[in-house]
Design a protein around this nucleic acid. Sequence first.
DNA 1: TTGAAAGCGCTAACAT
DNA 2: ATGTTAGCGCTTTCAA
Lengths: 340, 340
Amino acid sequence: MKKKEATIYDIAEKLGLAASTISRGLKGHHTVSQKTQRKIIATAEAMGYRSNTIAASLRTNSTQTIGVIVPRLDSYLMSQIIAGMEKVTSEAGYNLLISQSRELAANEARSVQSMLNSRVDAMLVSLAEHTEDLAHFEACKAKGVPLVFFDRVPADTDQLCITINNEMAGYQATRHLIDQGARNVMLISGSFRRNVYSQRLAGYRRALISSKIKFKPENIIINDLTEEAGIRAARAVVEQQADGVVVANDICAAACMNEVRRLGRRVPQQVKFTGFNNDFISRQVTPALTTIHYPGVEMGEVAARHVLAHLKGNLDIAQMENIVIKSNLIVRESSLQDHR
Amino acid sequence: MKKKEATIYDIAEKLGLAASTISRGLKGHHTVSQKTQRKIIATAEAMGYRSNTIAASLRTNSTQTIGVIVPRLDSYLMSQIIAGMEKVTSEAGYNLLISQSRELAANEARSVQSMLNSRVDAMLVSLAEHTEDLAHFEACKAKGVPLVFFDRVPADTDQLCITINNEMAGYQATRHLIDQGARNVMLISGSFRRNVYSQRLAGYRRALISSKIKFKPENIIINDLTEEAGIRAARAVVEQQADGVVVANDICAAACMNEVRRLGRRVPQQVKFTGFNNDFISRQVTPALTTIHYPGVEMGEVAARHVLAHLKGNLDIAQMENIVIKSNLIVRESSLQDHR
DNA sequence: TTGAAAGCGCTAACAT
DNA sequence: ATGTTAGCGCTTTCAA
């Protein structure tokens, strides 16, 4: 069972002071004399006193907690982003309340409610694949809780969004394969409901157009970008006789590439591959996978920093343009024309 | 700015009832008539009322929040474990407050304090590599906050610990390499301060003994098990003329294996490898990496379930034996004697 | 079945 | 420099 905790009243009593003086002394308020402050801190320590942030939160109407909702926790990219957020927020004395939607709009909506109930000071959200309707975020605006989207952001919103330039990245990946001699380039992607995938598609199409290559709908595969999905997609790659494949993440790309090789095609000589995210796997797979470097930790840090600045009143995120973080193409063997 | 929220008093006023009745009605207390309950719920909804869990927490002295401290968030294993925890706790109506120690005891201690301040109902912890002294966890016991360790657990503690059988896993991995013909087997590991590594070492030694192979201290490499560390370790593998290498995670194993091949040794013919964790990378690297399947999601679920049962009073974790989750060796090409 | 009142531990405006 | 007081919004005992 939970034990009874020491309160500022207990300290006050022991020192013959008022509770308010203890409160002030504990946070180094300038109206408290050096001497009493030292006494207060010493006895607080001695009594094992721990400030009850619940009570403080209730009183001040601020919890020093930021809610984070991600589609899934067990993804390399998301864990990088969250690591970045945690670093910045913990240094500022904020806590992170984290939940995952598991790609379902219903879970996402439930998490939003739960976090509003917990009175988080702000929310950082990356959308579930299946979220269509954004109504469950209205409550944030209604309650004045700042909301920032990152990575998977809504198509149009007046909230601050933090992304990479997915169109450009999709263009670069596709264009690179074409430059290396590919003419029949497939795209393996997640659902186009999400900006990260629809914009990569847009970039893919622009690259085809810029090289006067006809867009073929049958060259597009939509799946959940897992390892298994990559293995399944390999058959289509071989059947379509693709000579280039742009895949929207590295896990799926690596699995697909390996399976394509297993099916007898040579990579990169017959089929060239590019992935997305610059996971470890892109470096350790054979041939090493050309990919888009996606700065996850940085994205998390940037999201956290902006929301903190807003909470401090140093910045109004409502007035801000969306933030685009720099990504870049990393060329490795999986896409090279003159690979021996 | 945060807007004013509707409270049970606002509802009470609107309905001409007492706040206490609203409170009861909202949680379906049986002493409230069907009719008034319906009215209460309807107007609460209409007013956009959201229960203030902060106030409830202060009153009831329970936050429905569980604190999680992990060495690092950006690790595949940890994100799997956390995903498992999140699934179980969210279904039970609990929130997760998450922080990372970034392998530093000081950060870990700060997180413990911060979580106690936040009055988490329980804590789930995996130790930082650099934690020696466990004094910062004393406060949990002193305050009656249940504490469960998982994966990286203290050497001796009366808290519940959830692990795999690391000694057995280390034995199996090493023994397998010996069975495949290796005689000069190296071990690449994290710091032996942590049970997960010291016990794998114990298993490694037992395997050597059982095959009457002499233990050589120079066959042990301790590092941080990153990709870069794996690459660095490759030189030693070649210099020691190792014919087998047991590595304590897959990332480091894959990187080391690739570098060893780059240095001109053939895998598995000249050097055999085993990893740990069964990350994607173990399946996608060439040759595919023999590894220990580490059930991360399950470990997270088990940890969460036990702590919840304890909180509900259905179980006393203080009375429990440590829990050992089943792991197993997965044999792939990287370790096979008769590989063509 | 409903109401009144106290109090969880803290902060902050207003005294002194 | 320190004290008094009044809540923050909820739950819960006790009374009606």
